[in-house]
Computed example of a mutant assay.
Amino acid sequence: MPTNSDAIVSAGPWIVAIVCLALGILNMFGAIKITADESTKFLLGLAVVIGVVLIFRDRLTKVVLPGGITAEISAVKRSVQDVAAATEELKARQTEIAAPKMAILAPSVTTKHAPQMPIEDPEDKNKGQFGREAAKNGLRLSATVQPSDVRPGWFRIDLAVTGLDRKLVDPVACHLHETFNPAVQPVNPINDQARLTVLAWGAFTVGAIADHGNTLLELDLSADTTFPKAFREA
């Protein structure tokens, strides 16, 4: 629901545009006299132009700049939108490229608490090793999976251990498939959440050890039908 502050922010450009335009017109017709150096006058003139563009932006199609340079408003808008989209894509790519390095070293987390249950599935050795529960003791292990933008045929997996009704302050050990190097990656929590991003070409079971070994969490990535079928069945 919009608030008063939202309305003020939304109306801000209009207020600035009207004030700039009014001052420019009054100065032009001598109703008021603005004494300033040349650079300041240039800025005031530029403010008037910006004011006109803001007020009539839905009707303007092009602006002719000094020297006969013509700028198409629609083209400028598209360029800005393209830059914004490219920036978001670059951020996503940077996250994937940095994925192997995103585990923050947490020396206090070790593998000494790793469970030693009989192996159920030789191809997915974490399965059944961490209690089969994704939520326990006020913590939840979750994941999102989407196709990778940097490695065709691979998938980006965003893992998170989140504090539900309590704070998560201690490091978490994330147990990945044995083909990862390292297969156990310690992560320090930030804002009650320990996050880890990795790349993989197929699903596997993720285990997480929190609370210095007192809380075990388990999540089978192949069981979530919202994930891509090619990932779940690889």
Rank of each mutant, 00 (worst) to 15 (best):
K77I: 09
A17I: 09
A203E: 10
G131N: 10
K62C: 13
D170Q: 08
I25A: 15
K136F: 07
E96Y: 13
A86D: 12
L44N: 08
I8W: 07
P118E: 03
A22Y: 02
I209S: 05
A200L: 03
P228D: 09
D220E: 08
A223D: 00
V48Q: 12
E178V: 08
Q94C: 02
I157F: 12
L105R: 09
L21H: 14
V16E: 04
G12S: 15
P66K: 09
I25Y: 02
Q116K: 10
P115R: 03
L141G: 04
L60R: 12
N188G: 02
W14P: 02
E133I: 06
E96F: 11
A47H: 08
D165N: 03
I104H: 01
W201H: 13
M117N: 13
C174Q: 00
G51K: 11
T70C: 04
E218G: 02
P152I: 15
V169T: 14
T144P: 09
E120F: 07
G67L: 03
F42R: 15
G207V: 07
A114K: 07
K77N: 08
R166P: 00
A85M: 06
V48D: 05
T87P: 03
T3A: 07
F130N: 00
R140S: 10
L221H: 04
A183L: 11
P122D: 01
I104C: 01
I15P: 00
L159E: 03
V206D: 00
N191D: 13
N137L: 06
R57T: 14
D211V: 05
V161M: 04
A92H: 00
E178Y: 05
A234P: 01
R59F: 09
F130C: 07
L221W: 04
A36H: 06
D170L: 00
F180R: 05
G207A: 13
I119M: 09
P152Y: 12
A75D: 00
I25G: 14
M28L: 15
I119Q: 06
T215N: 07
V16C: 02
M1H: 15
C20F: 13
I119L: 03
A208R: 04
I97N: 11
L164V: 11
V198C: 01
K77E: 12
R59T: 12
T197C: 04
E178A: 02
D6L: 07
I190V: 15
T111F: 09
W154P: 10
M28C: 14
W201E: 11
A200V: 01
I15H: 08
P189A: 09
E38C: 12
A31I: 09
S74E: 15
A114D: 07
Q94T: 07
I119A: 03
P182W: 04
G67P: 06
T70K: 03
A134E: 08
T215V: 08
W14R: 04
L219C: 09
G131P: 10
R140G: 12
T87F: 01
H212M: 13
I73S: 12
A160W: 02
T162P: 02
S5K: 11
V109E: 04
V161K: 06
G12T: 15
A208Q: 01
P171C: 05
A86I: 01
V198A: 05
A234Q: 04
T70N: 06
H212P: 14
V19F: 13
L139S: 06
E72F: 08
